[in-house]
Design a protein around this nucleic acid. Sequence first.
DNA 1: CGGATTCTTGAACAATCTCAACAGAGGTGG
DNA 2: CCACCTCTGTTGAGATTGTTCAAGAATCCG
Lengths: 260, 260
Amino acid sequence: MTFSVAAETIAAAPVSIPATVAVSGPAAATEKSRCAGCAARSKGLCAALPAEELPELTAASRTINLLSSTPVVLEGAEADSVFTVVSGMLKLYKTLPDGRQQITGFATAGDVIGLAVGEVYAYTAETVTASTVCRAPRTTLHRLMERRPAVQGRLLAMTSVELSAAQDQILLLGCKTAVERVASFLLALSRRSRPLPDGSPSVFLPMPKVDIGAYLGLRPETLSRVLRKLEDAGAITRLTNDRIRLDDAAALEATATLAA
Amino acid sequence: MTFSVAAETIAAAPVSIPATVAVSGPAAATEKSRCAGCAARSKGLCAALPAEELPELTAASRTINLLSSTPVVLEGAEADSVFTVVSGMLKLYKTLPDGRQQITGFATAGDVIGLAVGEVYAYTAETVTASTVCRAPRTTLHRLMERRPAVQGRLLAMTSVELSAAQDQILLLGCKTAVERVASFLLALSRRSRPLPDGSPSVFLPMPKVDIGAYLGLRPETLSRVLRKLEDAGAITRLTNDRIRLDDAAALEATATLAA
DNA sequence: CGGATTCTTGAACAATCTCAACAGAGGTGG
DNA sequence: CCACCTCTGTTGAGATTGTTCAAGAATCCG
């Protein structure tokens, strides 16, 4: 269940977009205001755009609503578009020839997807929940960067942060044990979440356990066992299937072996 | 291999530089020509600099010669300088409180070291062979980027390539077996090396086996066993302790389970 | 040439994975 | 609104991979 957003439809489609509920160009809202009223206006790359650039971007971009489990970019496909996540969550992953998959990250509102070094996408991006993304041609981004150094600067900053996160993940995958990985993961997520009404930190995990495992380099069975262990130790409580409360963040930090 | 971004120069010295063999300011060569004649002039960030920027860079930077096993930047220390590797090889690593180390990459000529997202370095960089690096104040790099969008663009490109490499490493650490990791590593290195006189590809491994292990998420014992296995299988030949010839690159590729 | 470090090899051990079965959650259709 | 079906998640037991510990060999450097 998703719904459409706005209006026009030009939409070239190099990457197939199955399960799309709606593609919207300019329509519902005033064309000129689509970007201005966007939920991601103040995030990611768009935050670096002055208001006067919005009309061109609005004209060049399309908002797309997607159901869950829908691929947005495919590893190896020609990289001609970039996407900004407006809402929802996507998983980014790489696949080995024999089918093994490694999730390199999860993208949420404001994150940019589809930046490629070469001609093709380096990873596949797929929605894990119903999501809204905004597509723009790669050329538009390039033009914008030439004209606005601030955009390039913002992109550099975002890429640097991602690189730093990737190196943390390398540390996690290369050195840490299963429990340490899970504890680190929960803590990292909790820093980006709002605490529960009662003040205790919690994390929202809309993605399936297999995906969390694929992100942490663990099998879902192992993840399940580790979560049980943490729960038995009183460090966490599984409130629902997709929400965990951190009862003892200090204990988690102790077992997470955070970087020095 | 990995790397960092680029650098420029003025020279303050927040990080101690033990074992320095020689620090050279403007002196050996004509001051105005030091950068112009630098071995890294056409590499990394410097490649994006027009000749007219060189004098300022030369004035702001210092060339430093270092023995092996010498730290250049320390994880957690104030990040006020950036370095460009002129020659030699450095290892970049992160350390856990209990001493476990994960090497995130090796830096060679042209690579930039010390770019930080925040106020402090995110990793330690240490020479693995005697090396020459060029130090510049972070502020000089920032000034240069403002004045020359091309420099920022180059930095973005380098960072993007690094990010892509980091994601490949995440795939390697998260999914691959020991043999697959070693085969992938050897192949990756061989792509950047010159083949032997007889035409067969080979790789130069100046770093100790422990470091290769720390890069691949393996113990040195495991690495040793894997190399023996590959040698027994006829895929490689260990010419010397630091040079391996790839006798059957196709077999290595088959066992490397390269990304799709 | 000698001491020390690095590398290699062996054997036992531990962590994680694999396989398999069951339980629970969510969605569908009656 | 409930029953059914399927997919996801959990749990157990055994198999594997890679690690740990320890000793011997090779290499490096002075």
